[in-house]
């Protein structure tokens, strides 16, 4: 079997002012071909005006087994939210 062609993650910015958003992945030998393929595969109907391609192998992901210890502590820190603080109505909008 021939060598496998590397995998790339594709990010597209729908229009100026928005962030690039992950749309999917594709295989390509290098970044030049990855960009060309991303244009053909993910932007056939005006989905965006800018593309990023990133080697999938370069992404480090958080561990789903640690989801609880990573993200749950934020739930009990309600003092991080503006509604935690009582401001009298007379003060007006704040």
């Amino acid at each position: 079997m021939t060598a496998t062609t590397p995998l790339w993650e594709v990010f597209i910015r729908p229009r100026n002012g928005l962030a690039h958003k992950h749309v999917g992945s594709l295989h390509a030998a290098d970044e030049v071909m990855a960009l060309q393929s991303a244009r053909d595969v993910y932007t056939r109907r005006g989905e965006g005006n800018s593309i990023w391609v990133v080697p999938s192998a370069a992404i480090t992901a958080s561990d789903p087994d640690q989801t609880a210890e990573n993200f749950e502590p934020t739930a009990d820190k309600i003092y991080r939210h503006p509604t935690f603080y009582e401001i009298p109505d007379e003060v007006g909008h704040m």
């Binding site: 079997m1 496998t4 062609t5 995998l7 999917g24 594709l26 295989h27 053909d40 595969v41 056939r44």
Partner: peptide, 29 residues
Amino acid sequence: AKVQDEGGHGLYLYSAAETLGVSREEMTE
């Protein structure tokens, strides 16, 4: 344009399957 779309559909789906640990080459074979 339609046939090109179908090729695109195949590619979206192959990459969805690849997230489960099967390679494109294995599926093609």
